[in-house]
Nucleic acid binder design. Structure first.
Lengths: 339, 339
DNA sequence: CTGAAAGCGCTAACAG
DNA sequence: CTGTTAGCGCTTTCAG
């Protein structure tokens, strides 16, 4: 059996309670006793049993992250892992451990109830893809400390943190206007793609403000992949009036777009400016290097980690905000030389 | 206070011990009692307190994954998260929870000792980047159930699981020979890049076996990025004798290589075959689509999860193997039409 | 087949 | 400032 608090107490000629207080910095203990106890702990190589501790204080110092994993998640959704890394860093700073569990939206309710009742974790971080109205009710009724990553697309009582994609769209449009581009196009994902939709909203609001009209033909939607980006660009180029800059709703679309422009020998940035969102995975390998509106997802994870810890302290706190602001990384693809 | 085992016992007119046995399927209990207890558990919405349980049985049903995370890990190392997803799936099947903790090789020793002594986790999965001879000794002396992901590059007592990159290289070379290519080139990463090195070894062993010579000039090393792939290809093309196929040690090198070939209007696969390793992140967006030697990293994670669970059962088991075999995904870039 | 009893190792009043 | 005393909720002998 390994060394227990009683062994330490005995060796330090004191009681278990005192040792406990020394470890936790609670109560008031004389410096002499503190030194003696700490000395003995070191000598004996004592490490408090975490299981007994969790049990006694009724807390595990654990945050559970629930999301949908499964095959290819690492490749298709690197952002999620970036967020996770940020969360881990934040909670680790306060001595918490991050656990991860893959779950579907259907199983989520039952599982969350079990986890909470069984007290396996002190707080829950839920990816927006696993939440549902039923889960909202459960979490509210049971007052479960939680944060949802992503603003849920239904009315709810959840606390959430999200990225302000609308603002991202605004920044993209403003940047292009500032660079001297005057006729913008937007290549978006499918209509169900809320991220793409919010980015478009932001773009339109800026154009509206500047009284810039965007022709219907310059607004195109499709899949979020290279081929679609290529095809939508081809369509764009068939129009009588060409735009002088294009905003691609994501990396993959941008890749296809640049390929198409290259084939048509349209020079970037002189004849056509190109801007997109996020650094990864493709922005940096394209020539010319693309200007992007980037958001620091690691930081978003870090904020999430901090938030869930404060929710554990103050359970009636409601958190709802866009934690991390997007910013423009200017590169070659929008350096128009204004005559 | 939530409902405890005693509440259930009282309501079912029996004892806590019996309820415990019903839950765990231990001891022998009459069917009537089982039914009655289960009924009551459902009625009361009873969920056993995990903390008390962990404490009583001295196990947490938790696996801890130690690796180096930090900013951009999600983007630069998607494989790690793919492995993690696989692990999660495997351990979840047996009711275990996966925890993740970012740590550096320097901190790893101290932390592992603490974790083990404090019994926060039942088993440890260590990424090869955090292991060291000191950790090897610690893990051996304390008989800590563990698996290392990646064969450590120093002699050790660790249990490990790895990918057989040497075999990957063999498969690549064999595939090209089978397609009718006769003069191969290899574009590798830096000499410290062990993955690239093993892939090259595999290639050379096959060529050796088939008495195919590979000219010195066809073996080139550089950084593992697109620009380096491009530059190395340019060098290759300046030679008097051109190879008829090139093996790129990774995705990024392959991307640069294809760009260079395209600029020189060298047709793939007719004039030059191209093969690389791994599906992500670039193989599938390139035109023509690249033939790759792929390995199922999710499966590797899954195997790791299964292994750590068996190590927990049988602590003196030593595991050392290449868990998941690479396989060739044939696509356009190697479809030479043999005359 | 069932239940009483004795912990698991630590924390948190409370009394001294 | 320190120690005594009671648990935390479950599992696990062991006697009935």
């Amino acid at each position: 059996m390994s060394v227990t608090i009683r062994d330490v107490a005995a060796a330090a000629h004191t009681s278990a309670a005192t040792v406990s207080k020394v470890m936790n910095g609670s109560g008031s203990i004389s410096q002499a006793t503190i030194d003696r106890v700490e000395q003995v702990m070191r000598e004996l190589g004592y490490h408090p049993n975490a299981r007994a501790r969790n049990f006694a204080r009724q807390s595990t110092r654990t945050i559970l992250f629930l999301t949908m994993l499964g095959k290819n998640a690492g490749f298709h959704n690197p952002h999620m892992f970036e967020i996770m890394s940020g969360m881990e860093e934040a909670v680790a700073k306060k001595g918490y451990l991050l656990c991860v569990k893959s779950i579907s939206a259907e199983q989520a309710c039952e599982f969350v109830e079990k986890i909470f009742d069984s007290k396996e974790a002190d707080g829950l971080v839920l990816h927006a893809s696993v939440v549902s109205p039923a889960l909202d009710e459960l979490v509210t009724v049971k007052a479960i400390p939680h944060i949802v990553i992503g603003n849920p697309d239904f009315p709810s009582h959840f606390s959430w943190i999200d990225i302000d994609n609308r603002l991202g769209g605004e920044l993209a449009a403003k940047h292009l206007l500032k660079c001297g581009y005057r006729s913008l196009a937007f290549l978006g994902g499918r209509s169900e793609d809320r991220i793409s939709g919010h980015r478009l909203e932001g773009v339109l609001s800026v154009l509206n403000e500047h009284d810039v009209l965007i022709p219907k033909g310059n607004l195109r939607q499709g899949d979020s992949d290279c081929d679609s980006g290529y095809a939508r660009t081809e369509e764009l180029l068939k129009q009588r009036e060409l735009p002088d800059a294009v905003i691609c709703a994501n990396n993959y679309i941008a890749y296809g777009c640049v390929m198409a422009l290259r084939e048509h020998q349209i020079r970037i940035p002189e004849e056509m400016g190109v801007i997109t969102f996020d650094e990864y995975p493709l922005s940096r390998i394209l020539k010319p290097m693309l200007t992007v509106v980037d958001i620091d997802v690691f930081d978003m994870g870090y904020q999430t980690g901090k938030c869930i810890l404060s929710k554990i302290r103050k359970p009636n706190l409601t958190v709802r905000y866009y934690s991390t602001l997007p910013s423009v990384l200017e590169r070659e693809s929008t350096r128009k030389i204004v005559q």
